[in-house]
Design a protein around this nucleic acid. Structure first.
Lengths: 328, 328
DNA sequence: TTGTATGCGTTATCAG
DNA sequence: CTGATAACGCATACAA
């Protein structure tokens, strides 16, 4: 141990009076004679040795880091996801490198290069980039976005979520409902929310309308849509299903401004399961995504030894939760 | 370049017909003859070479990673902080390793060991552990928690924040106010919010009371405090200042249940500056922490070459924002 | 089982 | 200014 820098394996070997390789084997839990092991462990203890992760990474080509690529951590749903994924990684003794895309596609591409340069052991990505180039030399898992059968995708059961929302509104007495969402027409997972919703409406004989806003469109288009469906001061719908809790919350603000009462005049269901401050009550009545399970699935998939045997789409069950914007 | 693994400096050197060291010098922007530089850059381009961060880290003892130790990313304030810190790091070409303590002190200690083992270039920590052992061999910056003059602390101007809250309540017509917070009596930064509040009240001749809950105490103690200050169906206070926006929000729920109207009967100001979904309106009227500036200060401090010349406490200005729980 | 020696990809030192 | 070569700390194939 030269100077004041951290002790190295060589220092431990010298201290214990054994060979360098023996120390390495003890560290890695390989077969070592009991007396040797004891000597090494004692030396480790005395020196306060901890292996140098950089040296190990260079030699073994495993860094113990997983990169998480996600738009941000400001949206509470993303915050929740980041949190649970990190905890799952932590359980398995992996570290997380965080990359925020801010919905910028060029940043996503650059992150992938950066992550490969840093030799992360895997990537978990929640991306809106349809033409993302997915590296084939590093385990890659996506959230809510299906690319191809060779890229595992973890998502909640969006179809059932939409179905459940329509069914719930029907149960709660709604007769004419609408689904509103923002987002491109790409067949990514969340668009299945609409499919499930429509499917249930048809099945139940529930009258419905759909309103989708293209990505760049202003929010006011939603308000116009609602205004166009006012009939002598009353909204033509008595039930609304929104693509996200955030959209639901925004729409509710608009409705209140228009003098429409929630849930009295119109019942509203969102999607995601956002709680106030993450721990208090639900912000709106909602279809709850199983974030914990999604996180677990992402992590165990990306760390899976045999990616080839992993299912290409993992679909997790959702549930309904009351949040004050429906009748109880 | 053997097999299909990524090209190395040696590959680039061979391709360009120069020595290994020359490639390294080009990569690192050191002085290299124009013709040599060109040959190397062409070879890099052809091979799609990117330096291996692990090799560089081992040799140079700089990983380009900064660890952020924080309770979680579920609380929106933390989510905001994580976000801005990451963006600041990104600007400077650093990566972020995230560690969630979940308020568990043993996890905090373990993270510090882990981070040192991974040779992070610095640590930014938001911790509630009073006896955290701070490593002296790695740049360390704390948020909202002062340890000693040798450990730089970045905080918002909590005293002024408290002062501002009291002044604002006074301006808005309050005659009898109270401050409520939860947290230990440790003289950490946030406790200055109380000091500033008290200072302004005294100065303005504003009648005030204080209520602090110990860390483990149940929330119901706050409700009892309020109930004890009801006088024939009316709250004795017409203004409340709460230690955090979350507490403010919770108290408002309680008040509503008690039939007290906000802001009509009592005006409420929180602290932090939480917005709905991070981008919408403020959840309550509040003293806004300058998160962006806090992040910038943390990052530039932890990356500062001469930690010894850095101030031990960096205090950033706060502001008031209307959020519907005060009169306009 | 244990010791020895090599190399992972890079930076840095030292001659030329 | 450029080339050759030695570390950095560790894992591992190979020799004993």
């Amino acid at each position: 141990m030269k100077g004041r820098s951290a002790p190295t394996m060589a220092d431990v070997a010298r201290e214990a009076g054994v060979a360098l390789g023996t120390v390495s084997r003890v560290i890695n839990g390989e077969a070592v004679g009991a007396d040797f092991r004891q000597k090494v462990e004692a030396a480790i203890e005395r020196l306060g040795y901890r292996y140098n992760a950089t040296g190990r990474a260079l030699r073994s080509d495993r860094t113990g880091f997983i990169a998480l690529i996600i738009p941000n951590t400001i949206n509470p749903y993303f915050g929740l996801l980041v949190h649970h994924i990190n905890l799952e990684l932590d359980k398995r003794n992996y570290r997380m490198a965080l990359c925020f895309t801010e919905y910028d596609q060029s940043r996503e591409d650059e992150f992938i290069q950066m992550v490969r340069q840093n030799r992360a052991d895997g990537i978990i990505a929640l991306t809106y980039n349809p033409n993302l180039v997915i590296p084939s030399d590093i385990p890659f898992v996506t959230i809510d976005r299906f690319f191809s059968v060779s890229v595992p995708c973890v998502a909640s059961d969006n179809f059932s979520g939409g179905y459940l929302a329509a069914k719930k509104l029907h149960e709660l007495g709604c007769r004419r409902v609408a689904f509103m969402r923002v987002g491109s027409a790409l067949t990514n997972e969340p668009s299945k929310r609409k499919d499930g919703f429509v499917s249930a409406c048809v099945e139940l004989g529930l009258s419905f309308e759909l309103k989708t806003l293209e990505d760049g469109a202003p929010f006011s288009e939603f308000e116009r849509f609602l205004a166009d469906h006012m009939e002598n001061g009353r909204l033509a719908f008595d039930g609304l299903f929104l693509g996200t809790d955030m959209l639901a919350w925004q729409i509710i603000q608009s409705l209140r401004r228009m003098g429409v009462r929630v849930p009295r005049d119109v019942q509203v269901i969102g999607f995601d399961g956002i709680r106030m401050f993450g721990t208090q009550g639900y912000i709106v009545s909602t279809i709850v995504q199983p974030v914990q399970e999604i996180a677990e699935a992402c992590v165990s998939t990306v760390l899976s030894k045999h990616l080839s045997t992993v299912p290409s789409l993992i679909c997790l069950p959702v549930s309904y939760a009351y949040g004050g914007t429906t009748r109880e």
